[in-house]
């Protein structure tokens, strides 16, 4: 037997072996990553008990948890709250962030670099630090506890200008000579903004609106502090955590918590999957590439 065919087979076999190993790894990874969610879904349909058990597949399937979630807990209120916050926050926040990132990207003025450096340094402070005084002041205006929704909206949008990096990165990719051509053609800076740049910015506008909408659904820290243990003011994160925060609550509401988790996960996950193209573009085009 000559050596050449052997060598040739060796290369292919080696590749097939490494590919097989990779497939096995990938399948394992996929299973491991998905397991908790599979468990979560199963547990949400468990009827025979509401506390934690040692098995996954329910002995009895039913929609009890889902129904109880709506009738026995304040979940509908939490869901409504979070939805309203998301709606208002997304619109207002988008406007603010776009104004900020557009200005920093395309307008040149004295103090621009200083402004960006100051905001960078401000970002080094833990965000929660400002909560203490904000809570106090908001409570003077009755925007906390049961009235958390407007209070939270205010907190989210007011400082949202600091989150300009991704949008700015996007604007930076539009050639400056478009602005200059328009100005030579007779446009004011305002007209450049509305007639030229905005029509070209659909991707980033959509991205900003959707991320701003999704954020309140996952905020725990601020929402918890402002709602201050008043159920009527909680968002879904704080509310669901409350459902399992004490041992008594845990045994009574665990499966309802699972149902709540599923209900919140579905819409957000769908939104994120639609968004992921923009997310990668935004992060790699802006923040990551620098």
């Amino acid at each position: 037997m000559t050596t050449t065919p052997k060598k040739h087979m060796g290369l292919k076999a080696k590749e097939r072996l490494s590919n097989t190993i990779i497939y096995i790894l990938l399948i394992t990874i996929s299973i491991v990553w998905l397991i908790p969610f599979i468990f979560l879904v199963f547990e949400s349909f468990r009827v025979e008990s509401t506390y934690q058990v040692g098995y996954v597949v329910p002995k009895q399937f039913g929609l009890d948890n889902y129904i109880n979630l709506f009738t026995k807990t304040d979940f509908p209120i939490w869901f409504k709250n979070t939805f309203i916050i998301g709606l208002f926050a997304s619109v207002i926040q988008t406007i603010i962030v776009l104004c900020m990132s557009y200005t920093l990207s395309r307008l040149r003025f004295k103090g621009r670099k200083l402004l960006m450096n100051v905001m960078l340094v401000l970002g080094f402070f833990p965000g929660f630090l400002s909560m203490i005084i904000l809570y106090k002041v908001l409570s003077w205006f009755n925007l906390t506890s049961a009235n958390s929704v407007p209070g939270l909206i205010l907190v989210y949008v007011a400082s949202s200008g600091m989150g300009y990096y991704v949008s700015k990165g996007f604007f930076d990719t539009i050639s400056r000579s478009l602005d200059e051509a328009a100005r030579v053609d007779g446009a004011t800076r305002f007209q450049v903004f509305t007639k030229i740049i905005m029509p070209l910015s659909k991707p980033i506008v959509i991205y900003t609106i959707l991320t701003a909408f999704m954020a309140p659904w996952g905020d725990f820290m601020f929402a918890k502090y402002i709602s201050h243990a008043t159920s009527a003011g909680m968002n879904v994160a704080v509310g669901l955590q409350y459902l399992i925060s004490t041992p008594q609550n845990l045994s009574a509401y665990y499966t309802m918590f699972c149902a709540g988790g599923v209900l919140v996960a579905i819409p957000i996950t769908i939104l994120f999957m639609c968004l992921q193209r923009y997310y990668v573009e935004g992060v790699t085009g802006g923040a990551v590439k620098g």
Binding site: W33, F39, L40, G218, A237, L240, G261, F272, M273
Partner: peptide, 19 residues
Amino acid sequence: ILVLTSAVPQFISLLYVSK
């Protein structure tokens, strides 16, 4: 599949796994 897992809001994943 991987992206799906990170699309779920973090607080749900974390709380569930914690328990």
